[in-house]
Computed example of a mutant assay.
Amino acid sequence: MSRLLTHEELDRQLDDLPGWAVVGTQLEATFEAPDFPSAIRLVDEVALEAESMNHHPDIDIRWRAVKFVLSTHDLGGLSQLDVELAHQISQASNRIGAQARG
């Protein structure tokens, strides 16, 4: 079973996740894709990974910008699943040439 991560654990793991930030009880990042079809490909890749993990992000797409919000809702905060999915999202964004904002 997952558990909530401590602030120290989150801070340490965020060092390996450029563009990601803790906002309240959520982990958030926005990626700018080269074009709209690439943004849709990013969402599609993330959807497949999230489904395999049974851990689904909130996704907001605005033209080329795709915002991901992660949280382990049943725990009311952030777990290792969120960090792992953030890594998968970052890797997918690199593959399609999307850049983290911020």
Rank of each mutant, 00 (worst) to 15 (best):
M1S: 14
M1L: 15
S2P: 12
S2A: 14
S2F: 10
S2D: 15
R3P: 11
R3G: 15
L4C: 06
L4D: 03
L4G: 03
L5S: 02
T6D: 15
E8D: 15
E8G: 09
E9C: 12
E9H: 08
E9D: 13
D11R: 15
L14P: 03
D16T: 14
D16G: 11
D16Q: 15
L17D: 01
L17T: 10
P18I: 08
P18A: 10
G19N: 10
G19V: 03
G19Q: 09
W20G: 04
W20K: 06
W20Q: 01
W20I: 07
V22R: 11
V22T: 14
V22P: 05
V23S: 05
V23N: 04
G24F: 00
T25K: 15
L27Q: 14
E28R: 12
A29L: 08
A29N: 03
F31N: 00
F31V: 10
E32L: 03
A33L: 11
A33H: 04
P34S: 13
P34V: 15
D35H: 10
D35V: 01
D35M: 07
F36H: 11
S38E: 14
S38F: 00
A39M: 05
V43W: 07
D44I: 03
D44M: 05
E45C: 05
E45P: 00
V46H: 02
V46L: 06
V46C: 02
A47G: 12
L48K: 04
L48R: 04
L48C: 05
E49D: 14
A50L: 04
E51L: 02
E51G: 01
S52A: 04
S52P: 00
M53F: 14
M53S: 01
N54K: 00
H55R: 00
H55N: 04
H56A: 07
H56S: 05
P57C: 14
D58Q: 13
D58K: 15
D58H: 12
D60S: 13
D60R: 14
I61R: 05
I61S: 10
I61E: 03
I61C: 08
I61H: 07
R62C: 00
R62G: 01
W63E: 09
R64S: 06
R64T: 15
A65G: 03
A65V: 03
A65C: 09
K67Y: 04
V69W: 05
S71V: 12
S71P: 01
H73S: 10
H73V: 15
L75Q: 15
L75F: 00
G76N: 13
G76T: 13
G76I: 09
G76L: 02
G76Y: 05
G77K: 13
L78R: 08
S79E: 04
Q80N: 13
Q80G: 10
L81Y: 02
L81C: 07
V83H: 12
E84C: 04
E84V: 08
E84K: 06
A86G: 09
A86N: 04
H87I: 01
H87A: 01
H87F: 14
H87C: 02
Q88M: 07
I89S: 05
S90P: 02
Q91P: 06
A92Q: 01
A92T: 03
S93W: 00
S93D: 12
N94G: 14
N94Q: 13
N94W: 11
R95N: 11
I96M: 06
I96K: 00
I96N: 09
A98I: 06
A98W: 02
Q99V: 09
Q99A: 07
A100D: 06
A100V: 06
R101V: 14
